[in-house]
């Protein structure tokens, strides 16, 4: 969907007050994986607030990306318990598999690899999120299977 049409649809759905901003931003991320400058300007127009205010809000939240991201955003928990349970191995496995470093996106725009704070699964660490999906008690073997699944899943 064209970005303007998407934002119009979201504004119709959630409303055009400031308190509707975050659901709209989340709606854009859901579709586009990130909020482009064009999208931010359009949201500012719909809500009649300044683009700087939209940008300021986006950059506050880890999930409201303002830079392009891959179709699958992998977020590895880096909090202490996951760290103790093998976070480093998880990251190196992912980096090897995807051939990117933390913070980067694959050339085919399929995967982005990020770190994140506590995901709330410390008893089953190490864990990661792929988009909204949680994967717990990760091992290199498990990670390879998960990534293979997403690589296959073309749609």
């Amino acid at each position: 969907m064209e970005i303007k049409a998407l934002i119009f649809k979201l504004a119709e759905k959630y409303g055009r007050k400031r308190e509707n901003l975050i659901p709209i931003l989340q709606g854009v991320v859901q579709e586009e994986r990130y909020i482009s400058d064009e999208a931010m300007v359009e949201i500012a127009r719909q809500l009649d607030i300044s683009a700087a205010q939209v940008y300021g809000t986006c950059t506050f939240y880890s999930f409201l990306n303002t830079k392009p991201k891959g179709k699958y955003i992998i977020r590895v928990c880096e909090t202490i318990v996951c760290d103790m349970r093998g976070k480093k191995e998880v990251i190196s496995t992912l980096e090897d598999l995807l051939k990117i470093k933390i913070g980067e996106t694959t050339h085919n725009k399929r995967f982005s690899l990020l770190k994140t704070e506590c995901l709330g699964w410390c008893h089953k660490g190490p864990v990661m999120l792929v988009n909204d999906e949680v994967y717990t008690e990760l091992t290199p073997e498990k990670i390879r299977n998960i990534i293979a699944k997403y690589k296959e899943n073309i749609n």
Partner: peptide, 25 residues
């Protein structure tokens, strides 16, 4: 349901409210 967007400080009640109002937490 109001969904957060990845920010620890929004667990602080007034930051949470700011966030619900569409602002920085």
């Amino acid at each position: 349901i109001f969904l957060g967007s990845g920010s620890y400080i929004c667990g602080e009640e007034t930051a949470l409210i700011e966030s619900m109002e569409g602002k920085r937490g």
